[in-house]
């Protein structure tokens, strides 16, 4: 029953659009019928263009995420361990964080030219900040009693880091990574739409410019499916990895 209700609206829209574009809306140059979009996606899957574009987008998103998230997580974690370090870094972080990632598109294009370096650098910048902030919070909000325990049993600071601090911060760090992965995909597609001639975003743009609305709508739905799939996959992974731990604000 729930599934039926959930599917009602999309089905209604699809059937409505199909009827419209077969009847009065036929011959539209800007939009196309859902069946045509589906056929275009199947065709693009068949000739390999869609697979290539998807691989390019995912590679760029993943590469940028690897750079941005690892830098942000490590730096944020180190800062978060000390109250003084947090206070010292806050003004700088607050000053540079609001720079919109897309404002760096012209600069990155100038430095790297078109290609993966360009796209990854923007993704890295965009994912760096949320990782920095969340890792800092993860490190600074460790249960104080855990630290007391580590002091009582006389752990060295290295032991404390690997036995207490890191495991305690892990669930929050995973939440940071999950959010950043979502951002990475969005930013990668955005960079491709704005400038970079590769991947799914570019495919979408080219389909529009070459007046192939069915391919445009098909790739739009494909991008939606990938975003949804990545999101759902990471949510499931989080539920599986940290089943025993409740994370504030991190419920999938």
């Amino acid at each position: 029953m729930r599934l039926a209700k959930a599917a009602a609206l999309p089905l209604l829209l699809i059937v409505g659009a199909e009827l419209w574009f077969r009847g009065p809306g036929a011959g539209s140059e800007s939009l196309a019928a859902p069946s045509a979009a589906f056929a275009a996606i199947v065709e693009a899957l068949g000739d390999g263009t869609l697979v290539t574009a998807t691989r390019q987008t995912l590679t760029a998103a993943l590469g940028g995420l690897a750079i941005g998230a690892s830098a942000g997580l490590v730096l944020g974690f180190l800062i978060g361990l000390s109250k003084t370090a947090i206070a010292l870094s806050t003004p700088s972080v607050e000053l540079f964080r609001p720079i919109p990632s897309v404002a760096l598109i012209p600069l990155a294009m100038l430095v790297f030219g078109f290609g993966y370096g360009f796209e990854m650098s923007i993704v890295a910048f965009a994912t760096f900040w949320p990782c920095l902030i969340l890792a800092q919070a993860a490190a600074s909000q460790i249960e104080p009693r855990l630290m007391e325990v580590s002091r009582v049993i006389g752990l060295s600071s290295t032991q404390r880091l690997f036995k207490i601090v890191l495991p305690a911060a892990m669930p929050r760090i995973f939440v940071a990574l999950r959010l950043a992965a979502g951002f990475a995909l969005v930013v990668a597609v955005t960079v491709e739409i704005a400038a970079n001639p590769q991947g799914l975003g570019y495919m979408l743009m080219i389909a529009q410019q070459s007046l192939r609305p069915e391919l445009m709508l098909g790739s739009l739905i494909w991008i939606g499916l990938i975003g949804w799939g990545v999101n759902a996959g990471l949510n499931a992974l989080q539920g599986r990895l940290f089943r025993h731990q409740q994370v504030a604000g991190g419920k999938p």
Binding site: V189, I193, Q208
Partner: peptide, 11 residues
């Protein structure tokens, strides 16, 4: 929700 907002630009 996870759909990139910029993806509707071509449309």
């Amino acid at each position: 929700r996870p759909l990139p907002a910029s993806a509707i630009i071509p449309v």
